[in-house]
Amino acid sequence: MMIVVLFFIIILIVHREQQNRDEEYERIRNYVPDIIIPSMDLVLNLTETRRSVKWDLVIRIPSDLPGYYTCLKGSFQTFILYQGVNIANSSLSYNLIPNWPQLLNTSSVAFEGDMDSVVVKDIMEDIKERRDMRFGTQLLFPDCRSGRTMNYTCDETALRFEPGSQRKAATFEKTSPVCHYIRP
């Protein structure tokens, strides 16, 4: 009887260990590193005839992304979102070094004609009323594992206009927005 109980306990322990190994394997298999945007700047160009907005982004690529997840050479796209609406995008070719964290710089420009007039009006009201605005960012990288695209959605970024300026804004929060991989 004691041998049967001991045998049963051993089977339970082995089964639990196998479950832990399976869970750890799934966690590792599903892991994709986050990307950080350490810097985002905005410059408004307001003239009598047209308005445009230029974003400059610095994107920090973690050391474990190039080579395995993202191709070492390729191009990626950035999208700037205001209140959930895509108002600017850009593409950039890159060359990454494997196992090395890197910074990518990109710019996006949106002209008033490219944006919905309601969005332009909302942006201008935010500038006048609050002196800051919140933008979202989406990144698309080529996925070397599948040949498809890796879709990242980033935390919202708050941009505040410099004192005395209604044309130039930069991030002001202490933490940089983190971009999280969205599984297909």
Rank of each mutant, 00 (worst) to 15 (best):
Q166Y: 14
T70Q: 09
T78A: 10
I35F: 05
S39H: 12
E129W: 12
W55Y: 08
K128M: 14
V178M: 10
E162Y: 11
M1P: 03
D22C: 07
V5M: 06
L159P: 00
P98N: 02
E24A: 15
N89L: 07
R183S: 11
R131Q: 11
A169Y: 03
L57F: 15
I182F: 15
P33T: 02
Q19S: 08
R50A: 11
P184Y: 13
W100A: 11
P66V: 04
F8Y: 09
L6D: 05
V53F: 02
Y94C: 13
P101W: 14
M133A: 06
F172W: 15
V58M: 14
V119R: 02
L65V: 02
L57M: 14
D116Y: 00
E162D: 12
A169E: 04
L6R: 08
L159T: 00
R148K: 14
C154W: 05
Q166M: 15
S52A: 11
Q18Y: 13
Q166D: 14
I61H: 00
T70E: 06
S91E: 12
L42K: 00
N89A: 05
V14Q: 06
R21C: 04
L57W: 04
A88W: 03
I3S: 09
S90Y: 07
E173K: 08
I59T: 01
E17F: 04
E125R: 14
Y181H: 12
T149Y: 09
Y82K: 05
R50K: 15
A110Y: 01
E23Y: 10
V53R: 02
I28C: 08
N20V: 03
V178Q: 10
R50H: 14
I61V: 08
L46Q: 15
Q138N: 09
Y69E: 01
I59D: 00
F7E: 09
D64F: 11
T70M: 14
N99P: 06
E48N: 12
P38I: 03
P184R: 15
I13S: 03
V109R: 10
G84S: 10
C71T: 11
H180A: 07
R131F: 07
K73F: 09
R29Q: 14
T171K: 13
F7T: 06
D64V: 03
R131D: 06
N99V: 06
V32P: 04
D41Y: 05
E173L: 10
M150R: 04
E48D: 13
C71P: 01
R131S: 07
Q138C: 05
K174I: 03
N30T: 00
Q138D: 07
E112K: 13
Q77M: 13
K128I: 07
R130A: 07
Y69K: 03
T175C: 06
P66H: 01
P66L: 03
S146W: 04
Q77F: 09
R160A: 09
L159E: 00
N89R: 07
D122V: 00
I35S: 05
F111I: 05
V109E: 08
P98A: 01
I10M: 10
Y31D: 07
R183C: 06
